[in-house]
Every structure is written in structure tokens, then in C-alpha cells.
Amino acid sequence: MNKKMVASVSMLLLPWLTVPFLGKSFFRFLPAATFVNLFITVLSVIANRKKWYINKNPLFPNVPIVFTYILGPHFIATLWMFKLTYGSFLKYLVANIVFDWINAFPFAGMWKRMGFFKFKNMSPSMYWCITVFLAIVIYGYQYTVEKVVRNVKAS
């Protein structure tokens, strides 16, 4: 296995080592994390067709989905973001704006220098806007899920 493949597998697996520290929050916020990852997966297929960005080190070369990122850091970071900020929309939004900015700019530049990932027909700013918008959507989704669960438990 080459160095890039080891890095991809590590990116996928290392975030999962933090899951035991999430406790019950893992299951509580699983619907929102799953929902946004489904959306990001569809976006990944579209991005591949439109050449919005290039994944230069895919875990599965013939699959147009960035599984390493989606199932690793993105999924787990979504769960942690909810665990640490859910209940205060303003705190959640500010944390997401900052975290998504770091992801879209410094991290994307780092992935490019390492030869993993490169924005092509999509700017980092556009990616940042999409991820902030999705953060707002999934907060509403999680709020709705919790409201339904409370109503079911009450009846």
C-alpha cells in the first residue's frame, strides 16, 4: 500500500476512534449526520460529472464518491458539532461557519499540496456556502426529528 492510500484509509478510520466519547449522542444525532452524508454523496456524484473538484486519491478508483471524506471526518465531525453545540442555534451556526471555512480553505489547500484533492470548476467559496447552507438545513432536520420523537414518547 502506498503512502497516499495509507493516508486515505487513515482519514477514513481515525475519526471513528472518537465515537466512544460521543456516548448516546451518536444515536441521538445519527439521523442528521446520515441525512447530510446522503446529500453530500449525491453532490459528490454531480461534482464528479461536472468536474467541480477532483479526488486524486480515491479509496475506490472507479467510484465517483469521496467515501474517505464523507464516511470519515465529515460524518464524525457532524456528530461532534451537534454534540457540542445543539440547543443553541447561534453557537451551532458560528461553529459551523468557522469549521466549514477552515475545511474549505486551509484544509483544501493542504489536500491539494498533498496531491489528494483539488477544486476545479467550483471555488472554495462556493463549497463553503453549500456546507453552511447544509448545516442550517440539518439543524432544522434534527430539530424536527427530536420534536417527532418527543411527540411519539408523549403519546
Results as ranks from 00 to 15, higher is better:
2 N>K: 09
6 V>F: 12
8 S>A: 14
9 V>L: 12
9 V>A: 09
10 S>K: 07
10 S>L: 10
13 L>R: 04
17 L>C: 04
20 P>G: 06
21 F>C: 12
25 S>F: 00
27 F>V: 00
27 F>A: 06
27 F>Q: 01
29 F>Y: 13
30 L>A: 11
31 P>E: 04
33 A>V: 05
34 T>A: 14
35 F>W: 06
36 V>R: 10
37 N>C: 13
42 V>C: 10
43 L>H: 11
45 V>R: 13
45 V>Y: 13
46 I>H: 07
46 I>L: 12
46 I>C: 07
48 N>M: 06
48 N>I: 05
51 K>W: 08
52 W>K: 06
54 I>C: 09
57 N>H: 10
59 L>S: 03
61 P>S: 06
63 V>F: 14
63 V>W: 14
63 V>Y: 11
64 P>V: 06
66 V>L: 08
67 F>V: 08
71 L>T: 07
71 L>H: 05
72 G>T: 04
74 H>S: 15
74 H>K: 13
75 F>R: 06
76 I>E: 01
76 I>H: 05
77 A>L: 12
78 T>H: 04
78 T>L: 05
79 L>S: 01
80 W>N: 08
81 M>F: 03
84 L>H: 00
85 T>V: 01
87 G>Q: 00
87 G>K: 00
88 S>F: 00
90 L>P: 00
90 L>I: 04
91 K>L: 10
92 Y>M: 00
94 V>H: 01
97 I>H: 02
98 V>R: 05
101 W>R: 03
102 I>G: 14
104 A>W: 01
104 A>D: 01
105 F>D: 06
105 F>T: 02
106 P>Y: 06
107 F>E: 04
107 F>N: 09
107 F>Y: 12
107 F>W: 12
108 A>H: 01
109 G>R: 09
111 W>N: 05
112 K>L: 08
113 R>K: 15
114 M>A: 15
114 M>Y: 13
116 F>A: 07
116 F>M: 10
117 F>L: 07
118 K>I: 08
120 K>T: 13
121 N>F: 11
125 S>V: 11
126 M>L: 13
126 M>K: 12
129 C>T: 07
129 C>S: 13
132 V>M: 03
135 A>T: 03
140 G>V: 05
140 G>Q: 09
141 Y>F: 15
141 Y>M: 11
141 Y>H: 10
145 V>G: 05
147 K>Y: 11
147 K>Q: 12
147 K>P: 09
147 K>A: 07
150 R>H: 14
151 N>L: 15
151 N>T: 14
151 N>R: 15
151 N>P: 09
151 N>M: 15
152 V>G: 03
153 K>T: 11
153 K>H: 08
154 A>F: 07
155 S>T: 13
